[in-house]
Nucleic acid binder design. Sequence first.
DNA 1: CAAGAGGCCTGTTAGC
DNA 2: TGCTAACAGGCCTCTT
Length: 276
Amino acid sequence: MPELPEVENVRNGLKKLILGKIIIDTHVLWSNIIKEPSVSEFQKKMRGQKIVDIKRQGKFLLFILNDYVLISHLRMEGKYRIEKATVPLTKHTHVVFELDSDEQLRYLDVRKFGKMSLVDKDKLHLHPSIKNLGPEPTVETLKTEDLIKALKKTERPIKACLLDQKTVAGIGNIYADEILYDAYIHPERKGNSLSSDEIEKLKTSIIGIMSDAVEKGGTTIRTYSNAFGVEGNYQSYLNVYGKKDETCQRCQHKIEKIKVAQRGTHYCPHCQKIGR
DNA sequence: CAAGAGGCCTGTTAGC
DNA sequence: TGCTAACAGGCCTCTT
């Protein structure tokens, strides 16, 4: 499931291939992917737009066009592929952008969970998906004060706080588990129960894990791979996610899997204590 | 306002 | 073995 590191790698790959290309026409094969505007309006507005830049905010991919921004969220299994127009469409292709290069930018999504919105360029920062996103997880953008503010008054489990995109943008289920393991914090600890030292450690882990994952090309599990079918490497560095009943590398105790905020959650009960 | 539940989807896996 | 049911999961919408 693409989280920030995977989306960042998709962005870099797409930039190399389609920057400066013009969208001749758009075909929508599953209309629920297009959140706004209507499909016909979407097609009309896209026609003739040039792909000027590709950016990212949290897990949202932003195609910067002449007049609009295409906000694209891959959710669980969304992928982009570039193909020659003559290559037959595969089963899970839902949106096709015809480019001026005889190629097509294709959006594939097995579960059809992904969403696209086309918004006016000057209204991007007002869009509900974008305007509530918290800081990006880098040294320059994520401050201790941000975390203190987000956590000090909430009884929610820290895992739920990390998954909330208002706290930090771009963390999903895999990296939330990895971050909490790295910071020695139990996923069910209440937000307001963390000490200053723990918040400081959490910040360091958030920034460290996310940048490391970006650098290693993201995590490839199950069906996920980036725009070119290239796989990331970070799955080899996971410590707890998907490691139920395996041995903790730090203390040799067994990794456990529980449910927190309705999400599968992996942790080491010895390294990440609930009390204290 | 905060926070939890339900809905969107389909391929894979667990269980009878 | 062959079927059905549960599960996976990010975000939005609705409810409390």
